[in-house]
Amino acid sequence: MLTIENLYVSINGTPLLEGINLSIGDGETVILFGPNGSGKTTLLYTIMGIGGYEVTEGRILFNDEDITHIPAYERSRKGIGMSMQRPPSIHGLKTRGLVEMCAGKRTVDVEALAKKVNLESFLDRDINLGFSGGEIKRSEILQLMAQRPKLLLFDEPESGVDVENMALVGNMARELLEGPSEPDAQHTLHDLMHERKTSGLIITHTGHILDYITADRGHVLYSGHLCCADNPKRILDHLKKYGYKECIRCLS
C-alpha cells in the first residue's frame, strides 16, 4: 500500500526527517511512537502532501505509484485520508457540507454517519468552531467515514479526548480500519476479516488506541530517524519503563 524510500524532508533548510524507510502492506496497521518534536507529524503531513515540507531526497510510493510530488487533493482522491490533530475552523462552512464534500461524487447518509459518532447536533455548526478535543476527533472520523480512505493517517487519536469519548473514538477508528466488525446475514466473520483492506499509520503517545485496534507493528521516530520495529505493545512497555533514552543508544 505505502512504501517510503530513503526519505529526507526539511523545512526552510532545516532537516526534519533523515533517511526514512517504511513500508505498510494492504490491511496493515502501523503505530508510530516518538517524543514531541521527533518528526511524527512531519512524516504524516509529508505523506499527505501538506505543510510546506520539502522532500530533498527519496520518494513515497502509494500502490506502487510515485506520489512524492503530487498535490494533496490527488493523494486524497487516490485513497489517502488523514485525521488532523488540530484542524482549523472555517467560518460559515457547515460540518454537514464538509462531510458531503468528503464523499466526493458518492452520496452518503450524513445523518446516519453523524449518529454513529454522536455529532448529529453539530452538522449545522461551522466546522471545528468551538469544538472540544473529543468533538474534533469525532468530526475528523465522521469526515473520514464519508471519505473512505484506503490508507488512514491518524495523528494522535487520544489527544484531548476524555475517557468516555476514547471508547467511541477507538471503536470508530477500528471500524475505519477494519470495517463493520459484527457478522450479519450477508457477511460471515470470515468474510469480514478477509475484506479488510484499509491500512493505517497512527501516531500515539499514550498507546490508549491499542486497547481498541489491532496493530501489526510499531516504530519509534526519534530526532528524524526511524528506529525499532516491534510489536507496538512491547515498544510501549519499554517506553514506559525506560523512556526514549534507549533510542539514543540504539541510534548512536
Binding site: 499527505m48 487533493y73 486524497s76 488532523m84 482549523p88 472555517i90 464538509l98 464534500m101 471519505q147
Partner: peptide, 11 residues
C-alpha cells in the same frame, strides 16, 4: 484552511 479541504479531496 485550504490544505484542510484539499486533504478531503478538493482541488
Amino acid at each position: 484552511e485550504l490544505e484542510y479541504l484539499m486533504i478531503r479531496g478538493m482541488d
